[in-house]
Write a protein that binds this DNA or RNA. Sequence first.
DNA 1: CTAGATTTGTGAAGCTTTTCACAAGCGGGT
DNA 2: ACCCGCTTGTGAAAAGCTTCACAAATCTAG
Lengths: 210, 210
Amino acid sequence: MTRRIPESTVRRLSHYLRSLEGFATEGGTVSSEELAARGQTTAAQVRKDLSHFGSFGKRGLGYRVDELRDRLESILGMDRVWRLALVGAGRIGLALFEYPAFRARGYESVAIIDSDPAKIGTVWGDLTIRGSNELEEVLRELDVELIVLAVPAEAAQEVASRAVEAGVKGILNFAPIRLDVPPRVPVEDVNVVMELEALSFAITQAERDA
Amino acid sequence: MTRRIPESTVRRLSHYLRSLEGFATEGGTVSSEELAARGQTTAAQVRKDLSHFGSFGKRGLGYRVDELRDRLESILGMDRVWRLALVGAGRIGLALFEYPAFRARGYESVAIIDSDPAKIGTVWGDLTIRGSNELEEVLRELDVELIVLAVPAEAAQEVASRAVEAGVKGILNFAPIRLDVPPRVPVEDVNVVMELEALSFAITQAERDA
DNA sequence: CTAGATTTGTGAAGCTTTTCACAAGCGGGT
DNA sequence: ACCCGCTTGTGAAAAGCTTCACAAATCTAG
């Protein structure tokens, strides 16, 4: 039933879900028009995005808020808990680990791993930092499906490869390199410097045109 | 000379620049093929991307590494210093503030602003946290061009609007909402939860197909 | 100076995503 | 029961991005 779905559609689905949370109404409905307004897109786009997954609106009325939310959660795979491990216990790792939205959305941190002997054995929240020599063992033992990779660029590829070998299914990568992993393992990159560069490009470009 | 440049091209330019740093050679050259290999793209794509900005390769030879680097830096607006302010001194803000790659790439933090009275006046590195009531004043005084917005979602829109009013030219937004600002002000969103959702979608989708 | 081996720059083709536009379906009012 | 206003779902058109393929340019060797 589902052909290949554009990356951009997936991003928008997340947005729609976020927007729906603003409509806490029982039994209320929402139109593609309203959803578009809150998501900086168009009504046609909203309908096309949703139509990839079946048709769950009512003509003349719109979408039932609670039903649409359930459906989106199921589509995005958020109707279950994902066990994740944080690899790299630096500043970024710490900030992410303490970010409450993770757990709230079904992403449960079950392990923290670092290579620094000074950090191994210390406790963060309810987790004790494990050494990276134990990486595979920890990932397998705890059935980790996702890792948040927040290690220096030099170490990232090796950690990624070992994690995939240990059965990890997806990687959220903060290291500023392109990881080489089998195509079955999705990788999402978060690269703040690149985002800043996109900003300075846009501004410079606008100034040049002026 | 420059028509509209695809967002995806800009991202790749950043990658090329990052790759070039690996080729620290004086006077060396690099072909589109080599650059493509390091960037998970194709040689044709590399050439097309660069051709948007003129032609600075030599046929039969490739691109001069140092020249290409200079050119990319200039295109991306990295041949100068960008003054940025951090608004929101929470975990994420702290992690970013201490991230050395920022300064190394020409992004200089010149102010930190927060609304928490307990934080105002405390010192981070060489900066004293200012109160958000002083936002406009601080941004103007220090000629801030970019802000890193790391405040709770509820506060983000108001801060963004005030910052734009105070002359900010671009926003790196960590708050999980779409900001409504004038089109001349570029906004880049960093939304970790959305990236995780893209991962769980991809995995769920693959499992469904199987 | 010529031949051969490379590699760029770029129209054109191919593919993907977005936008358009409208028939079909639903609900409320009379 | 029927009409009217509204909103979805969706082919088809338009726009946008990537890949192809090849002429033109450059270098090396003889």
